[in-house]
């Protein structure tokens, strides 16, 4: 095997979630992931850049997957507030029958 010299490089993306990625809404993250895959597939990149792209793709994918798996529906009700404004109050399933 190759000697395990000079590491310092790739730390897995999973252990250090990129806040710029985790803040993305699903559609943006998905679009970014598609762009990453397309770029990577087009080839011709230096190895290091390919690996960086790959890792970003993995992080984007993880973010998307966790959004899909973990999202919880938020339902609110619009109510009239003072001065003709509107505010939202949470509406739990039990409240529907109110």
């Amino acid at each position: 095997m190759t000697q395990p010299i000079l590491d310092a490089a790739a730390t897995p993306a999973a252990s250090t979630p990129d806040p710029a990625i985790t803040a993305l809404p699903f559609d943006r993250a998905l679009a970014d992931l598609q762009a990453v895959v397309t770029r990577l597939e087009s080839g011709g990149l230096p190895l290091e850049e390919s690996i960086a792209l790959y890792e970003r793709g993995v992080a984007l994918h993880e973010h998307c997957a966790s959004l899909l798996a973990g999202a919880e529906l938020r339902v609110q009700r619009l109510v009239d507030a003072a001065g003709g404004s509107l505010r939202t109050v949470d509406l739990r399933p039990d409240d529907d029958e109110a």
Binding site: F26, L30, L33, Q34, V36, V37, L40, E41, G43, L45, L47, S50, I51, Y54, G57, V58, H61, C64, A65, L68
Partner: peptide, 25 residues
């Protein structure tokens, strides 16, 4: 959701393939 999960699976598969090719080159 199911469609998007399937779509993600396809994408991550392509990502792996492309990543592997990037190393193979």
């Amino acid at each position: 959701r199911a469609e998007q999960q399937a779509r993600l699976r396809v994408l991550v598969g392509r990502l792996d393939d492309a990543g592997r090719r990037a190393v193979a080159g």
